[in-house]
C-alpha cells in the first residue's frame, strides 16, 4: 500500500495511506508505526497513529522532511514480517440498568432486546485503533453491525469515567468525567489511565480487546 507523504510545518510528516477509513490502510499504519519504533531515525520525536494516517514528529535541528520521508520509504520497502500476536486485554463491563442508561434506547433503535445488544457487544472483536479526544480515550474499532448507531442528537454532560460508550463502529471506555454524544451501554472498573509511572496507559494502539460481563456486585 503506497502512502502519500505530506510535510507538516517545520517538524512533522503526515503519512496518509487512504482518505477513507479502511482496514488495510489501518493495518499499514500499525506496521509502519511498529517498524519506526524498532528503527527510529536521528531526530525522531514521536509518532501518532490514527485510522488511516501516521504522523511522524521530528526535531528540525537534527533532520528535515525529505530525510524523514526517505527513512519512512525505506521502512515501507522492508518485506512485511509477521506481526507479533497483538496483546489481548479482557475488559470487564457491567451492563446493569444503573450503569447502562442508553441500553433500552439502543435496543429499540436496533430492533433488538437489551440482552441481544449485550450479547452483540460481548461478541465483538475489538482493536485499539487510536487514541484521541482526551487523555487515555482509546477508540476501539469493531462494534458489530447489528448495534452500530450514529451518535445521539445532543451530548449528555458529566458522563462518569469508566462509562462504556458506543457510536458507529467505535467503542470507548472513558477515563474522565466528560460530555459525550455516544450511547452509554455499560460501566467498566478497569482504569485505562493506570496511574503507574512506568506503564501509564493500559493499551497500546493495535492491541486487541475482549469484553467480559460482570455483575454490579463486582464493581469496586
Amino acid at each position: 500500500m503506497r502512502p502519500v507523504f505530506h510535510p507538516v510545518a517545520d517538524h512533522a510528516v503526515l503519512v496518509e495511506f487512504a482518505d477513507q477509513i479502511d482496514p488495510a490502510a489501518h493495518a499499514a499504519v500499525l506496521r509502519l508505526d511498529q517498524a519506526l519504533a524498532a528503527q527510529p531515525f536521528a531526530g525522531f520525536a514521536e509518532a501518532i497513529p490514527a485510522f488511516v494516517t501516521l504522523l511522524v514528529d521530528f526535531d528540525p535541528a537534527a533532520t528535515d522532511h525529505a530525510r524523514v520521508i526517505h527513512h519512512l520509504r525505506g521502512l515501507l520497502e522492508v518485506p512485511v514480517s509477521a506481526r507479533p500476536a497483538p496483546v489481548l486485554h479482557e475488559v470487564p463491563v457491567c451492563y446493569e440498568q444503573d450503569f447502562a442508561p442508553d441500553l433500552p434506547d439502543v435496543a429499540r433503535a436496533c430492533g433488538l432486546t437489551p440482552e441481544a445488544v449485550i450479547a452483540a457487544h460481548l461478541a465483538g472483536r475489538y482493536e485499539v485503533a487510536m487514541y484521541g479526544f482526551a487523555p487515555g480515550y482509546a477508540y476501539l474499532s469493531g462494534v458489530p453491525e447489528a448495534i452500530r448507531l450514529d451518535r445521539k442528537p445532543s451530548p449528555k454532560r458529566g458522563v462518569a469515567a469508566g462509562s462504556v460508550i458506543i457510536a458507529g463502529a467505535q467503542c470507548l471506555v472513558t477515563t474522565l468525567t466528560m460530555p459525550t454524544g455516544w450511547w452509554i451501554i455499560g460501566h467498566s472498573p478497569l482504569k485505562i489511565l493506570t496511574g503507574e509511572t512506568d506503564h501509564p496507559f493500559r493499551f497500546e494502539v493495535g492491541d486487541h480487546i475482549a469484553f467480559r460481563r460482570i455483575r454490579a456486585e463486582a464493581l469496586p
Binding site: 512533522a12 487512504a18 477509513i21 504522523l55 484521541g132
Partner: peptide, 10 residues
Amino acid sequence: SIPSQAILRG
C-alpha cells in the same frame, strides 16, 4: 470531516 487524525500545536 476526514478520518480522525493527529492534530499539532499550530
